[in-house]
Amino acid sequence: MSDVSSGRDRDRDEEGRARNARPRDGLGRPLPYGAEGVARQPEGVVRAPEETVAEAQALLDAGRPFHAHEVFEDAWKSGPDEERGLWRALAQLAVGLTHSARGNTAGGARLLRRGATGLTAWAEATGRPTPYGIDLPSLDIWATTLAKKVEDHAPTPDAATNAPRLRP
């Protein structure tokens, strides 16, 4: 099947689903074909919660929140139903940081706030403010503070410098 707009064959996986195989930068933005990109996170990896947190933190610290989002998304999709809200909210925080670092002030702030709201709601519903050692109240403060800075048009935040600490 061809992509008519570009004249290129569409990238497909083994099952025939469309996939974009273009290389990407550290914030997940597509680069031109043939460019040197950052290795993508494999999709669909099932990790223990502690592994998810450790891998996501390492990616956040490296300034790769887009990739951390993918790790959280794997946990969201493969974890128990009662934890999906936790992992979804953490993924939203990572995407919020990604958009903020890309200069998307409205989208970044909105996703940071959505993630913070999701964490608070999940903690209140479950009575677990520190699941797997993750300090949800501190993440709420981090996200709302960064959202305000982004909306106030502070300089575009550097993803690594502004990465949250998931555990104290």
Rank of each mutant, 00 (worst) to 15 (best):
R84C: 00
V53P: 03
D3R: 09
A154C: 11
A106I: 05
G118P: 04
A54I: 09
L139P: 00
D152T: 13
R84I: 00
L59V: 06
L86G: 00
T105R: 13
R8S: 07
D13T: 12
S100P: 07
D152Y: 14
V150E: 02
S6K: 14
P30F: 04
G44Y: 07
H99P: 09
R10I: 12
R8Y: 08
G7F: 15
A91G: 13
T161C: 10
T98F: 00
T161D: 15
A91L: 12
T52Q: 02
R128L: 08
T120C: 08
E55Y: 11
T117K: 08
D3C: 11
P49C: 08
G118K: 04
P49V: 10
P157A: 03
L31S: 07
R165Q: 06
R19P: 07
A39Q: 11
T130I: 13
G7Q: 12
N104D: 15
L93D: 03
E82P: 05
W87I: 00
G28Y: 01
E124P: 06
E83F: 03
A35Q: 13
P137H: 07
Q92F: 02
R114V: 06
S5D: 15
I141C: 01
H153G: 05
A48T: 13
V38P: 07
P49D: 09
W87N: 00
L146K: 03
L139V: 00
L139R: 00
D25K: 08
D9Y: 14
E82K: 08
D158I: 10
D11L: 08
P23W: 04
D3L: 10
T161L: 15
V95E: 00
H153P: 03
N20K: 02
A109F: 03
P164T: 07
P168Q: 09
K148E: 10
I134K: 01
T130H: 09
P129N: 05
T98Q: 04
Y33P: 11
P137A: 06
E82D: 14
P32G: 06
L111M: 14
T161F: 08
E36D: 15
A21G: 14
D13F: 06
L146R: 01
I134G: 02
G37T: 09
P131A: 07
R12K: 13
V4Y: 11
L93K: 02
A56E: 01
S78G: 10
L146H: 10
A159E: 05
R102L: 11
L60F: 12
R88V: 01
H153W: 14
A143R: 02
L93H: 02
A121F: 12
R110T: 12
Q57E: 11
I134Y: 02
R167A: 06
S100R: 04
L60Y: 05
T105Y: 03
A125C: 12
R64T: 03
V95L: 01
L112M: 03
G79I: 02
G37W: 10
A116D: 04
E70T: 01
I134N: 01
L136W: 02
S5W: 15
P23V: 14
G85F: 04
